[in-house]
Design a binder for these strands. Structure first.
Lengths: 343, 343
DNA sequence: GTGAAAGCGCTAACAC
DNA sequence: GTGTTAGCGCTTTCAC
């Protein structure tokens, strides 16, 4: 049967009429309810196909009282870091039938409003890092919307997933000390993010254990350019080792050193954090984080909370906290140990 | 005034009651209609704030007949490539008040169903690369939903944005020929994506112009591992130059060469495509694409089409096609020219 | 300027 | 099994 192109999406009423049944039957047939005969189902499916019918999600959501969608809020997607988290989140959410809404705050001033609006569109929300203040988190949590915080300091009553910073930063420091480095610099702003704070704390603690005085952190944005800029000052009289809050900063230092013909690790050791793909090719010693898993776990936790809420089954599970392990990845930039295997 | 935590999102009715007005007035006040006095507006705002009221989007969407959300479909987010596009898209969409829904198909078999379902949630949809077949695109287009295809062969009646492949691949080839390379290999599957096909075509055409016989392409996935695997066979007897369909493949070749102590570019020249961050640190000659812009333009076009549709203003604008320029980025991996500036 | 009421497209009782 | 119908939460005429 020839069809003319439709300029407007068709509704369940049209499908019902075409199939010669009621809208209730269409609804049932299309959602594989076992309250319809195979015959009816086929008839309805045929009509729906002819009309290229796709149920309007707003109608369905309103009736069901759920959105079948989750949201994730992150500062940006420029580095590969957040992209990985989002991907893991999307994958796990899709696996349980949820769509995913993303929101990049870009440090916008109206981020709070955007997150609030997002909260009205989803059944659960993951909030990463320093995107909005604790007040916003508390407000949203107060509405009962399932929430999970990612790579961010906990807020009472809200689930949180983080990655291990202090301990691994300690290991990294020990490793650098093992290379004989004694003069350290730290590039990054502990006040800007709890992750950075944890990394600095771990470094400082390890140095103190060895009787060394930790350097004051050199405040620095988390991107390549900031790293390069910050390195300019630092490299006029390079320390033994520059511990960077993340890979992008370290890569920026790498570029600055290259430009000045300062050799890494001969003249100065450099380390990063995140294990980006670029780190491998810059031979950067760094710390690998399970970013994908961060997203996956967040989506699973949310799914569970959403289920709990829908079931209205008494008190929900206690607040959950998890710290995912991270792993030191030794490459050349921290100093050369003949005994070490570089990959 | 003290408030107890709410376990359920409040509705416009509760706000209306608290403010002592009708729901119509609440609706108006909250959306800054000038049909309410400043006094009333203040009263309503206060009530809404106390109740932590966020309008339910399903209700609003249903009433307005629009979702205020756009979707974007991509195969994956693993490489930094798609992440950039998505980011550009999100940014531009957010700027015009649209939320963004993402869908990664991961080569899933039920991708078509997922895309169809997504189509029912959005006012416009961007579809990237080889995520779903043309039949799905045509079906969705037939419903009248504004659509834009990204990095993909056009479908009649649907807007398309691509990046330049053939011409720049020709420039790249000329450059390699200028280094004196004559024996070429191409890593990538032209049948797998129109982008790859264009790059291969550009290479082949340039070689023919110089009286050389183009090599048959070596089929290869677009990720690092595939590149490394494909390189293993190739590097037993390396050609002069290996032109890779993207950076990840080229970086895989880089790793394989490193392992075999084959020197780039001394023993073999290698080039990529995309200009990922890692390419810079691997000194990879490649081609930069305006990925962010791809997303931005897509979101803008969709916004325009959505406007046209809502206005029902006669015939819509003609189908649009755009090819965004790409740019050769020369680094060390293609061969050393003393005269060239490397960055 | 404000309120009453009619939908928007769908699901889910409830009736038959 | 299938149909009827009452909402879901919101926007938007239409009265006043």
């Amino acid at each position: 049967m020839e069809m003319k192109a439709l300029s407007k999406a068709s509704t369940i009423y049209e499908v019902a009429q075409r199939a010669g049944v009621s809208i209730a039957t269409v609804s049932r047939a299309l959602r594989d309810s076992d309250l319809v005969t195979a015959d009816t189902r086929a008839k309805v499916r045929a009509a729906a196909a002819e009309l290229r019918f796709t149920p309007n999600r707003s109608g369905r959501s309103l009736a069901e009282g759920r959105h079948a969608a989750n949201g994730i809020v992150f500062p940006d997607l420029v580095g590969p870091y957040y992209a990985e988290v989002v991907l893991g989140y999307e994958e796990a959410a899709a696996a349980v039938g949820s769509s995913v809404l993303i929101l990049a705050t870009h440090g916008r001033a109206d981020a709070a409003a955007a997150v609030q609006e997002l909260a009205g569109r989803v059944d659960g929300l993951a909030i990463m890092g320093q995107t909005v203040g604790d007040d916003v988190v508390r407000d949203i949590a107060a509405t009962g919307l399932p929430l999970v915080l990612l790579a961010r300091d906990p807020v009472p009553g809200v689930d949180t997933i983080r990655t291990r910073n202090e301990r691994t930063a300690g290991q990294l420091t020990e490793h650098l000390l093992g290379h004989g480095h004694r003069g350290f610099a730290f590039l990054g702003d502990p006040a800007g993010s709890p992750d950075v704070a944890g990394r600095y704390t771990g470094l400082a603690a390890a140095l103190r254990r060895h009787g060394l005085i930790p350097p004051a952190p050199v405040p620095c944005g988390l991107d390549l350019d900031s790293g390069e800029r910050a390195a300019r000052g630092l490299l006029t009289r390079p320390p033994d080792a520059v511990v960077c809050a993340n890979d992008e900063i370290a890569l920026g230092v790498h570029l600055a050193a290259e430009r000045r013909r300062i050799h890494i690790p001969g003249d100065v050791a450099v380390t990063g954090w995140d294990d980006l793909m670029a780190a491998r090719f810059a031979h950067l010693t760094t710390v690998a984080q399970p970013m994908r898993e961060l997203g996956t776990v967040a989506a699973r936790w949310l799914h569970r909370r959403i289920g709990e809420r829908a079931a209205r089954t008494g008190r929900p599970t206690a607040v959950r906290r998890r710290v995912l392990p991270t792993q030191l990845v030794v490459r050349r930039s921290c100093g050369t140990h003949p005994s070490e295997v570089h990959r």
